[in-house]
Design a protein around this nucleic acid. Structure first.
Length: 263
DNA sequence: ATGCCCGTTGTTAACGGA
């Protein structure tokens, strides 16, 4: 089974690129983030014609997550509301999480709040959101069924996971110890990271800013991550960041992360 | 070549992204 995660930065604008990538990479399941779509505008028919069922949590102009599957989508849950400790900071109805069971694997697609600046209330919201996520996934993480949380974590786990750490200051998000601790705290409930291969260069960045020739200069960040429970990690045969999908016109600013499983 | 931001909206400026 091949699963993937991709922040596509608008499913409306990205549909041609998405369909082409589904055809070439042929994943069984894809976790998508940043749909930037209303439920009505979500291209359910086009994706069906490509062979994928959709579970969708669409938030309109901002956010939005989905799970595409060729192997079924069962027991769909929208958001973190199902778990205790859902953060009440900012808008509690932002479309940032969805979970489903696909081909016997329980999967979450998450779009973690950006945080904006360390002194912005959105940063505290980001840390609260991580706490709620950990609580929400704890039971599945400890279970026997293969389980993984895939998505845009909006955190670079180490200094190596950004192109130049000296470009980040004390008010910069994505690289603070508190954010990194929030991610690694997922290990306390039984999850561990699946590290992808880079297809080029040493670090498998997943995001490059559109501005200032970010991609050609490889000024990237590794912020799209996969955490799985022990049965999921044991089944992994390969993982890589498909930076080819970042090339050319009309691309997302993120590249997909692909995980192959012997399931 | 991978090339000088992009997507959305009570749109023609503002906001968010990271």
């Amino acid at each position: 089974m091949r699963v993937a995660t991709w922040n596509i930065n608008s499913i409306g604008a990205r549909l041609p690129r998405l369909l082409a990538w589904l055809d070439s990479a042929a994943p069984d399941v894809v976790c998508l983030q940043e749909l930037k779509s209303t439920p009505e505008a979500y291209p359910v028919k086009e994706l069906q014609e490509a062979g994928y069922e959709s579970a969708v949590n669409a938030g309109g102009r901002w956010n939005g997550v989905a799970i595409l599957s060729k192997v079924g989508v069962q027991d769909v849950v929208l958001g973190l509301e199902a778990g205790p400790g859902f953060p009440e900071v900012d808008d509690p109805h932002e479309a940032r999480a969805i979970s489903a069971t696909c081909g016997g694997v329980r999967l979450w697609s998450i779009y973690v709040p950006n945080g904006r600046e360390v002194d912005n209330p959105h940063y505290a919201y980001k840390l609260e959101w991580y706490k709620a996520l950990r609580a929400a996934v704890a039971a599945d993480a400890g279970a026997e069924r293969p389980f993984a949380v895939l998505g845009d974590y909006n955190v670079a786990p180490t200094d190596r996971d950004v192109w130049d750490i000296s470009r980040f200051d004390a008010n910069s998000t994505h690289v603070t110890q508190a954010e990194r601790d929030a991610v690694t705290a997922l290990e306390t409930v039984g999850l561990s990271e699946v590290m992808p291969r880079a297809l080029k260069y040493d670090v498998p960045f997943t995001f490059w800013d559109y501005r200032d020739l970010g991609f050609p200069k490889n000024k990237g960040m590794r912020i799209d991550l996969v955490y799985g429970n022990a049965p999921f990690v044991a089944a992994v045969t390969d993982s890589y960041v498909d930076r080819e999908a970042r090339k050319g016109k009309g691309t997302s600013d993120h590249a997909p992360v692909v995980v192959d499983l012997s399931l």
